[in-house]
Design a protein around this nucleic acid. Structure first.
Lengths: 336, 336
DNA sequence: GGGCATGTGTAGAACGTTCTCCATTGTTAG
DNA sequence: CTAACAATGGAGAACGTTCTACACATGCCC
């Protein structure tokens, strides 16, 4: 009372029991009578006791889960986070987010920091760390990796089925009658394998092949400018595509601008589809056909896997979440 | 070596000194010879020692700063976070983000959790807590509040000068020749005072008055739909405004859609301005005139204030960051 | 009534730091 | 030559939990 913090000892004194007993009640451990339970709970309420996480960390759990964000600007992070916190809402766990930056070095620094703070487990969202680095982290603490395909042995993984997502787009466009469908992907001298854009490009190729069509992949970057430049190049060709599938919505917005400037009307002259279903895609003025990943489900799944892991599961699990195609105004039959 | 973690005792053994000495070196405390310093630093490097934050927390600092986010979807959070991490980049402090949700209750839970984890200080971004609640938090730990006007006595504050920002927009529109300028604000039965939208509306009123013009404020909500509905109502009037200033870009996008649907061309028939300068505003297709808050500067300022506070300053400081007007394609002279 | 399981509570040693004293040494002043 | 003092290093007590080991009842069975 004198010096700020209420400790377990204060509770014990108030309830007239030992600190060990209070700890047992707190942890719901075996060997507590109903009477004891009641006395302690009352004392806790009266004093407004809250466990000191750091002290806990020294022996047991911290009830803190870390989510490393690789790029805070990524528009579907909020969904993932909402999924995570939603799933964890009625547990004792707290979620803390770590801005990891886009560099491997800063991401490594962040994961180290989270381990140093004895978090009970980590969710890494689209990390650019190598499989080896991830494996090291996974030996220190339970880990769930979101958005990286393949290579999950020491940790659990949740992925959007990007192959399927790309397939949905291609199927949709082919169904509308398109045959010249180009794909814009992200160029990166990547350390890491299995990043979403690579898998989406591969899914696009597979789907085109399945329809007996020739693929046409152009690598620029997942930015508005990247989409714009890519589209400009594609639209300048003699047999220009009738549809462009951008691997990310932000790039698709650039494609739309390029179509505007080229005087092409969408979707009559050019169909455009994106991926991620970011907020703007649904604005009526944009109305972009896109693939929705349901970040909430991804986040919730990741949270569940992590808690399971913490509570004892040892076998690795990879969970794949199916995306859905959201058809909007930017795709339609090609003009013949 | 056997069981995972390298502790200060391992370092001490390796360097042939006491743990107390290692701790001194770590903290850069007084009473360490150059030789000792060298020995210990070498041992630390060789063993790859990293201090255990929880153990530190029990006695001293954790070197962890918490940033509570009130709404992860808010598009300029990334800028603020970048500003914070940027400023802290070369210090020993680590930043952890806490998704506080939009409810007072969940925000309180988050700040409690951060205090329980003995963070050295907290940055609260646009919290909806009452001044009284904030004061309580501020007694437990150093606090910097971002984006709340007024009422900062026990803590530091960083605000965007929203009065000035609104003034910039009004001045700009008046300068173009507009006289019927309406403002769309956010409606909320708010517990909290001094939220940005209120201050923006007030700034708008002041500026209109200064120009001798009648103000016209409509409260809907800061969503695309809110902007749309608000604009529809405004544009249906007999003496419809020639310019609409939305208190947030997202609402301005709704205004643009309403203009579209009403067959009004922007900016000839209607000028539109927003606030926040979100990413989409700069896309060429949108090209929205907006007020930029420079979240990076805000974040960096908040970080500096917090560190100063932690390191001893006791006097409260409120820092106001001046916004800038970014003029783009949605504002122009009214058609006469 | 002795032995044994079972149920309930407590003592006290960790956990990895920080930091206040205290001990030792070397230096300087008188 | 001694007293005083500065500079350096170390012992050891915190910090607030968890959790193993143990003590003590009580009830039950043979």
């Amino acid at each position: 009372m004198t010096s700020g913090r209420v400790t377990i000892a204060d509770v014990a004194r108030r309830a007239g029991v030992s600190t060990a007993a209070v700890s047992k009640v707190l942890r719901g451990a075996y060997g507590v009578s109903a009477e004891m339970q009641a006395k302690v709970t009352q004392a806790i309420d009266e004093l407004g006791y809250r466990p000191h996480a750091a002290a806990r960390a020294l022996r047991g759990r911290t009830y803190t889960l870390g989510v490393m964000l690789s790029d805070t600007r990524n528009p579907f992070f909020p969904d993932i986070i909402e999924g995570v916190t939603g799933r964890l809402g009625d547990t004792e766990y707290q979620v803390l987010l770590g801005p990891g930056g886009i560099e491997p070095k800063t991401q490594a620094r962040m994961t180290d920091a989270m381990i140093d703070r004895s978090m009970d487990g980590l969710i890494l969202i689209a990390p650019v760390l190598t499989d080896a680095e991830l494996a090291v982290i996974a030996t220190a603490t339970p880990v769930v990796v979101v958005g990286r395909h393949g290579g999950a042995v020491a940790y659990d993984a949740v992925v959007d089925d990007d192959v399927m997502g790309a397939g949905l787009v291609v199927d949709h466009l082919v169904g509308l009658g398109h045959t010249r469908i180009a794909h814009i992907t992200h160029l990166e001298r990547a350390r890491a394998q299995g990043l979403p854009h690579m898998v989406r490009a591969e899914g696009y190729r597979q789907a085109m092949r399945a329809h007996g069509l020739a693929d046409d992949v152009l690598a620029t970057s997942f930015t508005e400018e990247g989409g714009f430049e890519g589209a400009r190049e594609l639209l300048a060709r003699a047999d220009r595509p009738t549809a462009i599938f951008a691997g990310a919505d932000i790039a698709a917005l650039g494609v739309l601008r390029a179509a505007d400037e080229a005087g092409l009307s969408v979707p009559e002259d050019l169909s455009v589809a994106g991926y991620d279903n970011i907020g703007i895609a649904s604005l009526k003025r944009v109305s972009l056909t896109s693939v929705d990943q349901d970040g909430q489900v991804i986040g919730a799944t990741a949270a569940s896997l992590l808690v399971e892991r913490i509570e004892g599961r040892s076998r690795s699990v990879t969970s794949s979440v199916s995306p859905t195609l959201i058809v909007r105004g930017t795709t339609g039959p090609p003009r013949l």
